[in-house]
């Protein structure tokens, strides 16, 4: 709110470029930073392997082609796994589902968290109290243990894992988005629409959400990293695809007993997961830096999670 009589200087012209597809602009500028280029290249490498891999695998991932834990040989460049299947083929075929599940979990988690956070901040009152206290309760559970519990009750259903992982993200996302929304919902352009009696649902979707694109982009990148780790970790623990299927997490578990005989069966999937998470993390870090550095966007991002638990009414 301006002090009466203060002429407010128009924002400098440089900022005007950031506007419409602001998140696109943030992403494209993030790519141009060194951090962003490295992150995106790492991500692209692993994603390419996971997506193209199933089509170029020399052998069927479930076919027994060599002796268990045999070393690299002409037909099997990375050797055989615990049951004598081709490690290379299993690596090539075993990534896409992890990526898909991680992406779906992220989408669900960020979507649910954003909906909860925005509603809590905009509606205030009892809705705020209800949503944020539920968030506190969810946060009080160790999320991975919670996911394991669900899976062990209902069985290793893939959709259940996606939901459980997504659900574990929602509280953090809700807190970040709530604090961003608190600021935006007090702005005059939101008040102007409220004065017309427009329904809160529409105000949140049409007026507030577009202003939250930047924190949402940053948050999604961060959550994707966590999702990959958790999904791969659950597979390692056996809560994922059932055994005959090729899966990086599962492969590490199956082949770790033969680590000294044929290390490739463990090292390659582990390295791919590591490269992927480092890539997504580096890239989302670059996005966050770009987004924070553009001045006007800085106020829309609140890197401190949940520092406002109860806002004064």
């Amino acid at each position: 709110m301006a002090v009466p009589g203060t002429p407010i200087d128009a924002p400098p012209p440089g900022i005007a470029r950031l506007r419409r597809h602001e998140w696109l602009s943030v992403l494209s500028r993030a790519v141009r930073t060194r951090r962003g280029t490295v992150g995106l290249s790492l991500m692209a490498l692993v994603v390419a392997i996971a997506v193209v891999g199933p089509f170029i695998a020399p052998n069927s991932p479930t076919e027994f082609v060599t002796a268990p834990f045999s070393g690299p040989a002409p037909g099997t460049p990375l050797g055989g796994d615990a049951l004598g299947r081709d490690v290379l083929s299993r690596v090539l075929a075993g990534g896409w589902l992890i990526l898909l599940m991680a992406a779906a979990a992220t989408l669900f988690g960020v979507g649910a968290g954003a909906a909860a956070g925005i509603s809590a901040a905009y509606l205030r009152g009892w809705a705020d109290a209800l949503i944020m206290r539920s968030v506190d309760v969810v946060l009080a559970f160790p999320s991975l243990v919670f996911a394991l519990l669900l899976v062990s009750i209902i069985g290793p259903k893939l959709w259940l894992i996606v939901l459980a992982v997504g659900f574990s993200h929602a509280p953090q996302v809700a807190r970040v988005l709530r604090s961003s929304t608190l600021d935006i919902s007090e702005r005059d352009f939101v008040k102007a629409v409220e004065l017309q009696g427009v329904k809160p649902r529409l105000i949140m979707a049409r007026e507030i959400l577009p202003s939250l694109i930047t924190p949402l982009t940053v948050e999604a990148g961060l959550r994707l990293t966590y999702s990959i780790i958790i999904v791969a970790g659950l597979s390692f623990l056996g809560f994922g695809q059932p055994p005959p299927a090729p899966n990086w997490g599962l492969m590490i578990n199956e082949n770790r007993i033969g680590l000294q005989l044929n290390p490739w069966g463990v090292v390659v999937p582990a390295a791919l997961i590591a490269v992927l998470t480092i890539g997504t993390n580096t890239f989302s870090d670059a996005v966050a830096r770009v987004a924070l550095g553009v001045g006007r966007q800085a106020e829309e991002i609140t890197p401190l999670e949940g520092h406002v638990l109860v806002a004064p009414r």
Binding site: A2, R19, R20, R187, F189, K191, A192, P210
Partner: peptide, 9 residues
Amino acid sequence: NPYTSLNPR
């Protein structure tokens, strides 16, 4: 304040 009353997006 016309700088805050119009939705920048």
